[in-house]
Design a protein around this nucleic acid. Sequence first.
DNA 1: ATGGTAGAAGGTCTA
Length: 261
Amino acid sequence: MKIATWNINSINARLPALITYLDKEAPDFLCLQEIKCQDENFPLLDIKGAGYNALFAGQKSYNGVALLAKEALAKPLFSLPNAPDGGEQARFVSGVTQAGIRIISVYVPNGNPPLKDPTNTEKLKYKLAWFDALHSYLKGHADEPFIIGGDFNVIINDGDVYNPEAYRTNALMLPEVREKLADMVKDLQLTNAFKTLHPEAGNYSFWDYTMGAWQRNLGMLIDDIFLSPSLAERLKSAEVHKYMRGMDKASDHAPLMVELT
DNA sequence: ATGGTAGAAGGTCTA
């Protein structure tokens, strides 16, 4: 069973790349983030043509998440219960597989202040509150198997970014942000699928569009897939599909794929 | 002290 997560940075701008990816890698489940379209503009026919069903939570201009699956998913949920904004921002979608595994796609808030006002911490507070809501939601489902994939917008270890000192005060790496994710992982005994198999530094899933970041390998690992405890022993392989970042018209994120037995 | 790039929307914000 293959499950992948990919911040696609506009599903319509990336539609040819998406179809190519589905054909080539054939994930059973694909979590997408930043689809950047409203529901009425979601390319459902193209995705069905590629052999996939889709659950999606769209939004105008920003955010937006989807969950593609070869099978039909049950119990669809289109927003995070008790999200700090009441679910106004489309950052969460989940469904349950026929085998009874809950699959969740999340786009965790970035949390950095608007450039015009570096003293503004509203976005950071929102990020921390969003993590609280996610933790509570998962805690309520801790007795069921689940897999959560997404853009977590957290640099978990210093070795997961090309220059940790440059990001020390960035919302992707602030201690209180790292603690929120670490507390959730510890409390729910989650397995970080990729890092468990590839603990070494220097594996990235995101390279900024600016600064020639891709060509210079100035990247960071901010996309993750976590497994609930009962699925941990099924972990077989995990990899970042870097070739997707090297394509023309690439997203700034590469997909991360995990295989379970 | 801001740039660099990309995307959606629509003439600016978010990342």
